[in-house]
């Protein structure tokens, strides 16, 4: 399995999951995550060839229901917790043009 976890990898992962980490946090998390990953490496000792992966405890797939229209949540309720809103919309910083690098 993997080489020792680097600071660069920690920064990369933080970016992937949209977390801002300070330099001090990078080292803090690197050390802790490296210890956890080292422990998890014990899985590599097992022979899992031919074992079917198990994503779910019960053998249930594609639970379907009749496609019947029903009322959704009222917009006022949907927006009730919004940090910033401009009904009937959620409001966010500018996405396009200047300042938008999303």
């Amino acid at each position: 399995m993997p080489e020792k976890l680097s600071e660069e990898q920690v920064r990369h992962v933080a970016k992937l999951c949209r977390l801002t980490v300070s330099d001090a946090e990078v080292e803090h998390f690197r050390e802790q995550l490296a210890a956890i990953l080292e422990y998890i490496d014990k899985l590599s000792a097992l022979d899992v060839d031919g074992v079917e992966p198990m994503a779910h405890a019960l053998d249930v797939t594609n639970a379907l229901r009749p496609d019947e229209p029903s009322a959704g949540m009222a917009i006022v309720d949907v927006l009730a917790n919004a940090p910033q809103k401009s009904p009937p919309f959620f409001q966010v910083p500018k996405v396009l043009g200047e300042g938008g690098n999303a």
Partner: peptide, 19 residues
């Protein structure tokens, strides 16, 4: 930070808002 929950103040753009 868009639809509910805490949102950071004075964010420059969407990525900054998320992070």
């Amino acid at each position: 930070g868009v639809r509910y929950g805490r949102r950071a103040d004075d964010t420059a753009d969407m990525i900054d808002l998320y992070c």
